[in-house]
Design a binder for these strands. Structure first.
Lengths: 377, 377
DNA sequence: CTGAAAGCGCTTACAG
DNA sequence: CTGAAAGCGCTTACAG
């Protein structure tokens, strides 16, 4: 007699028991609900599908019975029939950057609204491993939030594109791989940094970037360098270090020990900048910004701390996540990946690690492409 | 003809094509592998189960065919038959605390070794919602890494225990709910803080805790207070604030404005302590530790930064995660929850926000229960 | 709109 | 050890 419950006779009939939760016997199935509601199992299934053909009274009956039994469709069974898991994977290799907790939190909120779950990609070693894992779990989409290690992220991205796994890069892109991405306008941010430091009458510039030529890093640097050149300023020194406080600290110590010590340093991110800041203050006993101005990028929570008050360009996390989820949703719906590249301007936050503009109000000048704002740390 | 592939005729036979990845047609099934390897589908299944009865040559044949097809057992199908999903859920409401990225990272590593995936609990509003979600995804276990908001975490814990969902609390416990947990020995940590401040000849103590009586918070406070009392010191002022830098900053501003200004402040965590530190330095223009000593708890990365050099008690994250995973594994294997409560001592890191011990070597005295260490920030 | 039935891709008794 | 078959709990054509 197919179509009727089998092998479930051992389970206590959770007809009106109050806490039929899980624990003891297995969770209720759609047959249990059908039985209680006096409808067919198909009808139960339809009651839980938004677009399914079912009359309001039937749906009501089913939902009421489901509520009493604490029933929810088994995700695995649903996944098996539909071949869609409802799961989005995240590759967050750079979780150490304090910007990512809020990124993850925002994704979590928005994805919940789309009824998607977040599965964390395990620390795979190769792109093949990643892809096998993605297919094993029938992951519907992948978000990569960092490009370090570059080679691995890139290989994974390439595999995903090849395999048709919807992919969105967060604050990264790969020029040679056609994939959807949402970034801060890093080049513009670099230009904003240049403007800020130029307005403060600096002349000896430096840029400290990460160890690998990620797009974010490269664009921030390029925007900075280009704007300096446009304004007729001398080219900056360019240093590489680890993408961390310790990296910034070491680089800052070295850079500030040079004869031709720069008096304005723009760092590829806040973590580096905060390391440089401490290297200047505590390593070299310099006054910031009197002796040297320092800027970061991202606006991590620590940048606003009173002891740091770091001038920086804020990553527009909220808008970025919003767009990323939008792109991901579109990529999951259509089979066809669009490879759209979104760039969102970041806002300048002038705090206390950059010299005030001479004769200015303390605000950055109005010639910026994006309205600056004096932050109340 | 049951037992043979059905409805798959439309798919290109991926016999020797090189990249049969995903993308176009569906991923290969065990039937495809069986076909290629010249064995039955059952044998394919057995080749992927560690304990299954299968001869080495057969397994080898299967695995080779699987490799060629990039085959991996469909997790949903497996979950459906075994009723076990291989998924562990994480509830990390307090992701803002910079200690959690490393916690999550360590869990990720260890869980991978156990072949478990991490699914993030969405931002549910009620315990019932959480439980329904847990059963919908047949989650095998839950890790709760924070107790804020207390009421929700507690309600979820209670539901899980009631429903038999294996649960491990990370650095939290609920006295009235029998559930496995792994914590830092917070009371001991509080005592260490008291010893450190007493040894520096302080007399006017304060404790700043979080807004809710979480176990970690309460134990740190209790250990601190008890040790002060044992040593005949006057009882500390006790303040409450948000579990954040901003909370600590506000509380520090207020506390240090008092007539009976404390000269030694122990904070429930580093984020609060760093806020207090900046309130002292930049809000009140005090010298730390000359005018006031400040201690935190956790040893977040920022505590070691040169500008902060915060004396603190380190959360033994690595050991804690190791034990937590162990407990979780046991709870998932046995049906019976043990409610074991593990406490691991945290290590004292003396940096520069506490006065050196008079006449001492700069090291904390040797009477501490746990060997102190002077950190090289 | 509603119900009976097939099928998703596995695992696991059951025979041999 | 190996294979044929049943069954996991759903979704979705297919009839009515």
């Amino acid at each position: 007699m197919p179509g009727k419950p089998k092998q479930t006779s051992g389970r206590p009939k959770a007809a009106d028991a109050d806490p039929p939760v899980a624990g003891r016997g297995r969770p209720p199935t759609s047959y249990d609900v059908a039985h209680l509601a006096g409808v067919s199992q198909s009808t139960v299934s339809r009651a839980f599908a938004a677009e399914a053909p079912i009359s309001p009274p039937f749906r009501k009956k089913v939902l009421e019975a489901a509520r009493r039994l604490h029933y929810r469709p088994n995700a695995a069974a649903r996944s098996l029939t539909t071949n869609r898991s409802g799961v989005v994977a995240f590759f967050v290799p750079n979780i150490g950057n304090p910007i990512y907790p809020s990124v993850l939190e925002q994704f979590s909120q928005r994805l919940r609204a789309m009824d998607r779950q977040i599965l964390l990609l395990p620390p795979v070693q190769t792109a093949d491993e990643a892809l096998m894992w993605l297919t094993q779990y029938r992951v519907e989409g992948l978000v990569i939030t960092a490009a370090s290690p570059l080679a691995l992220s890139k290989a994974i991205a390439r595999k995903c594109v090849g395999a048709g796994v919807p992919l969105v890069l967060f604050n990264r892109y790969f020029a040679d791989i056609p994939v959807a991405s949402v970034s801060c306008d890093n080049a513009l941010g670099g230009a904003l940094a240049a403007e800020t430091l130029l307005a403060a009458r600096h002349r000896r510039f430096a840029f400290i970037g990460g160890p690998e030529p990620t797009s974010a890093d490269a664009d921030r640097c390029a925007g900075f360098v280009a704007r300096l050149r446009e304004r007729g300023a001398p080219p900056p020194l360019i240093e590489k270090t680890m993408f961390s406080y310790a990296g910034g600290h070491a680089a800052g110590l070295a850079l500030l020990a040079r004869r031709d010590r720069p008096d304005a340093i723009f760092c590829a991110n806040d973590l580096i900048a905060l390391g440089v800041l401490d290297a200047a203050r505590y390593g070299h006993r310099l006054k910031v910004p009197r002796d040297v101005s320092i800027m970061g990028f991202d606006d991590v929570p620590m940048a606003a701390w009173a002891g740091n008050a770091l001038t920086t360009v804020r990553l527009p996390v909220e808008e970025m996540v919003e767009r990323a989820v939008e792109l991901l949703g579109r990529a999951m719906a259509e089979r066809q990946e669009k490879a759209e590249v979104v760039r969102i301007a970041g806002e300048l936050f002038v705090r206390s690690t950059t010299r005030a503009v001479p004769g200015g109000s303390g605000r950055a000048p109005a010639l910026f492409a994006v309205g600056p704002r004096r932050a109340n740390s």
